[in-house]
């Protein structure tokens, strides 16, 4: 008995040592500025004044009582949820195709990654051209295929601008999703499929009964990743629409930026950040649970 116990202790110690480098890295580089920001959210901290007095929850009251915050939250949630769902569906489809026995599989697996390698900052200006209402190739494509008669002004139309940005996000991020899901597919043992085939299960059945359940943790992980990535998305919004037309694409990231660097109110900027973190945690915990539920054997 005593031997077993000490072995468990030894194991735990080894486990802790394994986690140590990660803990150190994260606490050094992220926690300090993070705590500083949380502290700032309780200050009347304007870049334009020398004094930064403690103001209790005044920033929180101001942010939570402003329509701008809820509007931006709504824009962000619409954007994030749509993008993540579309990416999951397309990602699964692509991963399944690239997992099956097709010709030039390795080549396709590589070229599908290219969109992700194009720097976002360059992608966004190229899409400015593609979407351009007067000269854009998208209008040309849609007109010549007979889908529209009048040229669309995608980024200047309140009902289309967000969709335009989503399109770029999906284009840019789905490749990553695909590769992650593909990695997950590789992790499913072939023997299960073989057993299922012997049992006479069809492709559709084995997808829903074997593939999907086995992929669940990986899918939850990538969904989580994409949720956080898109919540943080700034470059696309900033360079494509700058939050416009009017406020149609003013996401939380743009609102935060504006508050901190155009209104110079670092206190309120940090406050939006703290509230944002809680919203995001609320979203993430269920996904996290799915991803890391203890495996039933």
């Amino acid at each position: 008995m005593t031997i077993r116990w000490s072995r468990k202790r030894k194991n735990q110690l080894f486990g802790l040592i394994l986690i140590l480098p990660a803990s150190l890295l994260l606490s050094i580089t992220i926690l300090t500025p993070l705590f500083r920001s949380i502290y700032t959210s309780f200050l009347d901290d304007s870049l334009l004044s020398a004094l930064h007095p403690w103001n209790h929850f005044a920033n929180y009251k101001a942010v939570l009582s402003s329509g701008a915050f809820y509007h931006s939250l709504q824009v962000t949630l619409t954007y994030v949820i749509s993008v993540v769902v579309i990416e999951l569906l397309v990602g699964i489809a692509l991963a399944l195709i690239l997992h099956s026995n097709i010709i030039l599989r390795g080549f396709f697996r590589s070229i599908i990654l290219i969109p992700w390698a194009i720097p976002t900052i360059v992608a966004s200006v190229i899409f400015l051209l593609i979407y351009n209402s007067d000269y854009g190739v998208l209008n040309q494509l849609l007109i010549s295929s007979g889908l529209i008669n009048e040229k669309l002004n995608i980024l200047n139309d309140a009902s289309l601008a967000l969709i335009g940005i989503m399109g770029i996000a999906v284009w840019k991020q789905t490749p990553l999703m695909t590769i992650m899901i593909l990695a997950g597919l590789q992790g499913i043992s072939k023997s299960i499929y073989e057993a299922a085939t012997i049992d006479g299960a069809g492709a559709t059945r084995s997808f829903f009964h074997i593939t999907l359940p086995a992929l669940k943790p990986v899918l939850a992980n990538v969904a989580l990743l994409m949720t956080v990535t898109n919540f943080q998305m700034f470059t696309l919004f900033y360079s494509l629409t700058n939050g416009g037309p009017v406020d149609a694409t003013k996401s939380l990231a743009i609102l935060t930026y504006e508050t901190a660097f155009q209104k110079y109110d670092l206190g309120q900027g940090a406050t939006i950040g703290v509230i944002w973190m809680f919203v995001l945690l609320l979203f993430s915990i269920p996904l996290y649970r799915i991803a890391h539920r203890p495996q039933e054997s």
Binding site: S23, T29, P33, S37, L224, Q232, G269, I272, M277, H292
Partner: peptide
């Protein structure tokens, strides 16, 4: 701890800039 690790990614980078720079 895992959730804590995760939440380090959840703060908007824009508001962390000044803190990161000083650090």
């Amino acid at each position: 701890m895992l959730v804590l690790f995760l939440s380090t990614q959840m703060f908007p980078a824009v508001t962390l800039l000044i803190g990161l720079y000083s650090l």
